[in-house]
C-alpha cells in the first residue's frame, strides 16, 4: 500500500491551471525526485501534500489522512508530514536547538528535557552538534538548511517533503545538504524532493518523476529514465540541464 497516494489532482490559480490531473503513488521508503521546468507545477504539487495549498479536484491521501480542503485534520497530517523549504525559514529569534525543540514541546507536549535530547540527536545527525546554541544569523546557508532538516526530523515524520532545498545555497554549500538527504534516503526515510540537482536525482532517488505543463509526463527508475528518456520533452530537458 502506498504511503502517499495522489489521484487526478487538479489545481488552478485563477484562470491558470497549474496541475492538470496528477496521479502518483509513493511507497514507504521511496525517495522520489520530482524534476521539471519552473512553472511545471512541481512545487505546487508538493505544497498540496501537506495542505499549504488547496486543490480543486482529485484526492491526496498521506499516511491514511485525506488532504481535502477545510475539513482536513491539518494538525494530525503535519505531525507526520515534514517539510523543508528553499529559503530555510528558520525562526530567527530562536537558537538552532530551540528551533528544533519548538514543535515537539508545543505540539506533542514533550518535556523540555526530552525535546532537548531529541534536538541533540537530530542535530548530531545533520552534523551540527556543536551549533546547538547558535542563532540562525550565526550560521551559513548550508548549516541553516541542515538545522531546518533537523527541525523536521524532530517530529519523526513518516514523509519528508523537500522543496528545492539547495536552490538558495552557494554552490560550495550544496553538497553538505545533499549528503544529509542522501543519508536519510539510505536509512529508509520516505522523501519527496523537488530538485534541480539531476545527478542527485539519478544517484539517490528510487523513483524519478518528470513534470511538464501540470502533468506527470514521465516516471520510472531514475537511472533508466535518464539513460533513455522516452518523450522528446524530457530528452530536451535533460539535454539542457544535464
Amino acid at each position: 500500500m502506498s504511503l502517499v497516494s495522489i489521484r487526478d489532482v487538479r489545481k488552478s490559480f485563477g484562470p491558470n491551471e497549474v496541475l492538470k490531473g496528477v496521479s502518483l503513488d509513493i511507497a514507504k521508503g521511496d525517495a522520489v525526485a520530482i524534476i521539471g521546468r519552473s512553472g511545471s507545477g512541481k512545487s505546487t504539487l508538493l505544497r498540496c501534500i501537506n495542505g499549504l495549498e488547496t486543490y480543486q479536484s482529485g484526492s491526496i491521501v498521506a499516511d491514511g489522512i485525506e488532504v481535502a480542503g477545510a475539513n482536513t485534520n491539518l494538525r494530525e497530517l503535519r505531525r507526520h508530514v515534514g517539510m523543508v523549504f528553499q529559503q530555510f525559514n528558520l525562526f530567527p529569534h530562536l537558537t538552532a536547538a530551540e528551533n528544533v525543540m519548538l514543535a515537539p514541546t508545543v505540539v506533542n507536549k514533550v518535556s523540555k528535557a526530552e525535546a532537548r535530547a531529541t534536538a541533540a540527536e537530530v542535530l548530531a545527525k545533520v552534523g551540527l552538534s556543536e551549533k546547538m546554541d547558535a542563532y540562525p544569523s550565526e550560521l551559513s546557508g548550508g548549516q541553516q538548511q541542515r538545522v531546518a532538516i533537523a527541525r523536521s526530523l524532530a517530529m519523526r515524520p513518516k514523509v519528508l517533503l523537500c522543496d528545492e532545498i539547495t536552490s538558495a545555497l552557494d554552490p560550495e554549500l550544496v553538497n553538505e545538504v545533499l549528503r544529509v538527504v542522501e543519508q536519510l534516503a539510505r536509512e529508509g526515510m520516505t522523501l519527496i524532493l523537488v530538485t534541480h540537482e539531476m545527478r542527485f536525482a539519478r544517484d539517490v532517488g528510487t523513483k524519478l518523476v518528470f513534470m511538464h505543463h501540470g502533468k506527470v509526463h514521465e516516471e520510472g527508475a531514475p537511472k533508466e529514465v535518464f539513460a533513455a528518456p522516452r518523450t522528446p520533452e524530457l530528452q530536451q530537458f535533460v539535454g539542457q540541464v544535464g
Binding site: 499549504l52 491539518l74 503535519r78 508530514v81 517539510m83 525562526f91
Partner: peptide, 27 residues
C-alpha cells in the same frame, strides 16, 4: 514578518494561536 515563517510553523503542525505566540509575535 515573512510568509515563510508562517509556512514553516504551519508545516510543523502549530495552530494559529501557537504560531502567533511562539513564532510571529516574538519577532
Amino acid at each position: 514578518i515573512p510568509k515563510g515563517q508562517w509556512e514553516a510553523s504551519s508545516s510543523l503542525a502549530l495552530s494559529y494561536i501557537e504560531q502567533m505566540r511562539y513564532v510571529i509575535l516574538p519577532q
